[in-house]
Design a protein around this nucleic acid. Structure first.
Lengths: 214, 214, 214, 214
DNA sequence: AATGAATGAGTCTTCATTCAT
DNA sequence: TATGAATGAAGACTCATTCAT
């Protein structure tokens, strides 16, 4: 955990040091990767869109793949940040009387993140299938850290009799599936007349009922 | 619907006419596309793996993209086939007393399909973000046909008092999310000690409870 | 000369034996070669336009180049036929009192030929620069036979005092240049309001005056 | 005319900016195009002969066709330069008492040009039939500018009674045909014992007599 | 630090030609 | 005789990366 935190700090703080050109490169690359995919995007396109010379990209990122990792790795960390930030996590565990409240907070928090990072998240999701290291990184972080923390939370609410006696992994699976389905619908299908409040209420009700003890 | 059926027949039956070389090409391409993605797979790799000359690929598929479409389009149709085959659908609607039974049948049926078509489905899912025509095709078929048929089914069980008064679209979303999450876990995470029967039971119980009227 | 005549007969008569498919192939190839050039025309295009299978072309013509030669060689012979047909030639020499009359007959005769063979002639002219054998063939036939026959004719009219004492080669050059310029203008530039009779009269007058003794 | 001059300046001066590699590419391409034709010359051949990597060609010329145009367009302009350079033209009109003198100057001037640009001119002539844009460019420049300027000159000498009352277009046609025939003989047939002075004298005499009033 | 010209391996695709049917 | 599937070499062009300036 110490090591992870350190690496995360490095990654996240490193973005403070970026020159404007570097930021342009990252922004351009993210946009193109999200749109056409990593493999179908050429470094010359990125350079053009970023307004820099092609050589400049390779001064900052040794290879094209390096550029991808520089985008994807910190994002993956930020995706799961609520689960690895100890302080916040403690709060989560104890601040919310009911599992529903915890869920609602979680959704709101991640929603805010998505609103600001839609493209990068798209890149992460789209590229994971093609890059084993990314997959490993993802499994290691999400599967390990998130599962661990989430389990504790679930057990907490199970102890309070709010969740049925189901394996925490199954709870995690169902909760994530439903929330992901919600986000996917909102951000990809983008239906007209989408009533956010009502949708979230229904979603939480569905989850709570489905997970409640008989 | 007639037109769709016809096109489907064409697509699906066309696979009967395939020469052995064509089948090799499709198999090799599917495998590589699933593994490395369309854009990162070269036609020379495909040719080598298929045991044919590179030129042979282009005799059968005008472009590399054409080859992708020849893999993906029929698969998309087969993915949703239970929803567009009138007869099966009727059966589904009426044969199952309880919504749970309908769900169980559905899951079994699609599971069998996945068991035989895992790779192609992987290609479909992975490539959709990068090819607008695929997305359109998908939305048109799934969003239209599946939604429509599924809605009828949902309303049928709502009338029987087994499903709460939720918009069918929301029911569809939650059901698909949970089932997809189940498949994703099974096929991607592939956890050790996976007890299929028990998982399906839990999954159906979760859905049924979550969707049941208060 | 005997050999030439024989080869010519072979070439020209051989066209009688052609099957319909062969004729289609020759016609299609001629059209495409005239339009896009030999090197830029593919055998598959020719096959398609001729309505035959690609293999069929190679059954009749061993190589693509062979097909070109089958078009070009007989045409080259027909282009210069008035000079190698002994009988006609004799007539030419003696039937026309004045050089002008000879020229007029010549132009009319070649014009008729061009009207029927414009495309093939186009191919001949366009491809000669790229195929040394064609150039050689051309020089041998035109440079040898035509020059020889035309020289006799010129000398005949020089003896009659109608042409100045210029080397026959120079006369040939100027006469051909002017006639070619005339045809080029007519067939390529194709100016509106082209009065054929008047143009020919002027052309002959120009040549006659230019070549006349002081 | 202003626009043309500008474009010409651009085209011609642009050749000053060429790097050595670019010059090598142009030289190699010209040589190969002249010898085998545009369509039959591969970019890899050009690269090899120019001593550069194949990619380098495409850094300077977006397509192979672009490379052709970069060779052909400025050459076409230089071919007709005596007719579009106002100052020279004025001189031509007035410096020469007799049409013969004008012709002699013209021939000498163009001969010098040909001596230095034989290959490029070959390319222009050989490729025009296959590239409509080239043909259009040629017709527009030669047909328009040259015809116009030459007409004025012809009318000048007609007014002086040196040329018969023939349409200037016809004069232009005959003069160009004969001069082209002269150049073709000199550069293509390249006969032994060619006496340049004598040939030009005869040629001019032929033209002058042929065009003189009765 | 930034450039952009240069590279050559690699891309998709087309080609002329062959051969089993 | 005619077909058209199959070939693999070659085509034009693009790519990620390097390096001298």
């Amino acid at each position: 955990m110490e090591k992870l935190d350190k690496r995360m700090e490095e990654l996240l703080q490193s973005e403070g040091d970026l020159t404007e050109k570097q930021r342009n490169i990252l922004a351009a690359a993210t946009e193109m990767f999200a749109q056409k995919g990593f493999a179908a995007t050429s470094t010359s396109e990125i350079a053009k869109k970023a307004g820099v010379a092609e050589g400049t990209i390779f001064r900052h990122y040794k290879t094209k793949k390096d550029l991808l990792l520089s985008i994807v790795s910190p994002t993956m960390l930020r995706m799961i940040s609520p689960f690895i930030l100890k302080d916040i996590n403690k709060v989560l565990n104890q601040d919310y009387e009911r599992f529903e409240d915890f869920l609602r907070e979680m959704i709101k928090n991640r929603q805010a993140f998505l609103d600001n990072n839609l493209q990068v998240v798209k890149v992460v999701i789209q590229e994971i299938p093609f890059h084993p290291e990314l997959r490993d990184q993802f499994i290691q972080h999400v599967g390990q850290k998130v599962y661990q923390r989430f389990s504790e939370t679930v057990q907490y609410y199970q102890a309070k009799g709010q969740i049925a006696d189901i394996p925490p992994a199954t709870v995690l699976r169902n909760v994530s599936s439903v929330i992901l389905g919600y986000f996917a619908t909102k951000y990809i299908v983008a239906p007209v007349g989408w009533d956010e409040e009502k949708e979230i209420d229904e979603l939480i009700a569905f989850l709570a009922k489905g997970l409640a003890p008989e």
